[in-house]
Computed example of a mutant assay.
Amino acid sequence: MNAFLGPLETDGRVQPRQQTRVAAFLVSAHGALARQFAVALPAKFDAAWQVELNAQFYRESEIVSLLARATTWVPDFALTHMVASWEMAWLPAPVEDIADPARAQAIHLATLAHAIHAGIRPAALLPTEASQNDPFVMALRRIEFESSRLLQAQILFLKGPDLLPFRDAVSAALERRHAEVRRLWNETLESIGIVQRE
């Protein structure tokens, strides 16, 4: 088991099998966020926070589009089962003590996005000798950069005054989401010979 992607190909590019498995996970996670942001978007904005929701939707869509084009895809039959388990994990989960459906949906989206953006650091998988000319390498670096920016919006919402009365419920939901995303990400990496150190 390695801590990084590899062994690299002779030109320093990441192996297509590893690209496919990592990209499939990231497309599933960011695609789920894009779909759920799209459903949460109102037809007309009547609150300032909805502008951020719109921006997040387009950023997630951009990440999916980038991965679809930058990845060297190869057939991977194990993905059928893996993708099904990932997609089930992204579904909304009830948040204790939150009766308002709109607030519960917002908390679900923010905790899922926080867990994905904070818990998945794809560029950290790249060895120093990875080729700068590999579109996949550049995509992973770009995704991590965007994730760090998007994370700020989730932090502001989750720590905002509107959720102060529900702090314990939000913290518990966030902890559950982080544990689940971390488990699925680690399982995906282990399936291609990479071990993440906590």
Rank of each mutant, 00 (worst) to 15 (best):
Asn2Arg: 14
Ala3Val: 08
Phe4Arg: 08
Leu5Ala: 01
Leu5Ile: 06
Gly6Ile: 08
Leu8Ile: 03
Thr10Cys: 00
Thr10Phe: 12
Asp11Glu: 08
Gly12Cys: 00
Gln15Arg: 15
Pro16Phe: 10
Ala23Leu: 14
Phe25Asn: 03
Ala29Trp: 03
Ala29Asn: 01
Ala34Trp: 09
Ala40Ser: 09
Phe45Met: 04
Phe45Asn: 00
Asp46Ile: 14
Gln50Pro: 01
Gln50Trp: 01
Leu53Val: 08
Asn54Phe: 06
Asn54Thr: 06
Ala55His: 05
Gln56Val: 00
Phe57Leu: 08
Glu60Phe: 02
Glu60Met: 10
Ser61Thr: 05
Ile63Thr: 11
Ala68Ser: 12
Trp73Arg: 12
Trp73Phe: 12
Leu79Lys: 11
Leu79Ala: 13
Thr80Met: 02
His81Gly: 09
Met82Arg: 14
Ala84Asn: 07
Trp86Ser: 01
Trp86Phe: 08
Trp86Gln: 08
Trp90Tyr: 13
Pro92Asp: 01
Ile98Thr: 04
Asp100Val: 04
Pro101Met: 13
Gln105Lys: 14
Ala110Val: 11
Ala113Asn: 11
His114Met: 14
Ala115Phe: 06
Ile116Gln: 05
Arg121Tyr: 00
Ala124Phe: 09
Ala130Phe: 07
Ser131Arg: 06
Ser131Trp: 05
Asn133Ile: 00
Pro135Met: 13
Phe136Cys: 03
Met138Gly: 00
Ala139Val: 09
Leu140Tyr: 05
Glu146Thr: 12
Arg149Asn: 07
Gln152Trp: 09
Gln152Leu: 15
Ala153Tyr: 04
Phe157Ile: 09
Phe157Cys: 08
Lys159Ala: 13
Lys159Phe: 14
Pro165Met: 14
Ser171Phe: 12
Ser171Gly: 07
Ala172Leu: 15
Ala179Arg: 14
Val181Asn: 04
Arg182Leu: 07
Leu184Gly: 00
Asn186Met: 13
Leu189His: 06
Gly193Gln: 03
Gly193Asn: 06
Ile194Ala: 09
Val195Leu: 15
Gln196Asp: 02
